[in-house]
Design a protein around this nucleic acid. Sequence first.
DNA 1: CAGTCGATGTACT
DNA 2: GTACATCGACTGG
Length: 200
Amino acid sequence: MPPAPLPESFYLRPTLDVARDLLGRRLHRRLGRSILAGRIVEVEAYHQDRDEASHAFRGRSPRNEVMFHRGGCLYVYFTYGMHFCMNIVTEDEGIGAAVLIRALEPLQGLPAMRRLRGDPASPVLLTGGPARCCQAFAVNRAQNGALLQGPEIWLSPGEPVDDTEILATQRIGIRSSRELPWRFILRASPWLSRPAPRLR
DNA sequence: CAGTCGATGTACT
DNA sequence: GTACATCGACTGG
């Protein structure tokens, strides 16, 4: 039996708290009779308030509708004409907020992930990057709005992460509100979309 | 290594 | 038109 989903209450907290707390959790995806799993090692928070880079900053629209749903579902959007990105929706109905999954450590179903990704040369190219995570886990428009209580896709507790393992940095690939340190990484993970900044 | 650039759909000015 | 929460192929050092 696969691990049980995190409770809905996990998602109904301030988005930055959820973002940090997502590190070390596991993402599970059922594909027919097989199950894929990965450990979350890199995320970015987005919020309707004070965050011009957020899709929710300018209010509800058909695209960002799911960001305003009650926390505990998946917001999937299409970008750059060919890629999908997946987000964990947070907070109450009516608040536009979500956490982008940027990198995972593959744990289960690696052969299937390799097929879905076109057999990349380096292991980190399997799930290092938000669009790569979606491709490796077969996530696309069809999963937009999916509830995270399974059986299609869900999160499980995984194992605890100490605060000292977490680093907050600026987000990747955005212009506005770039000063917000809302990217959270497991600093020692080899599975990040890019290496942790050097210590000083 | 770093930097550049094309692919290609959708949202928004 | 222009930008876009990206990726992969290619260039040059």
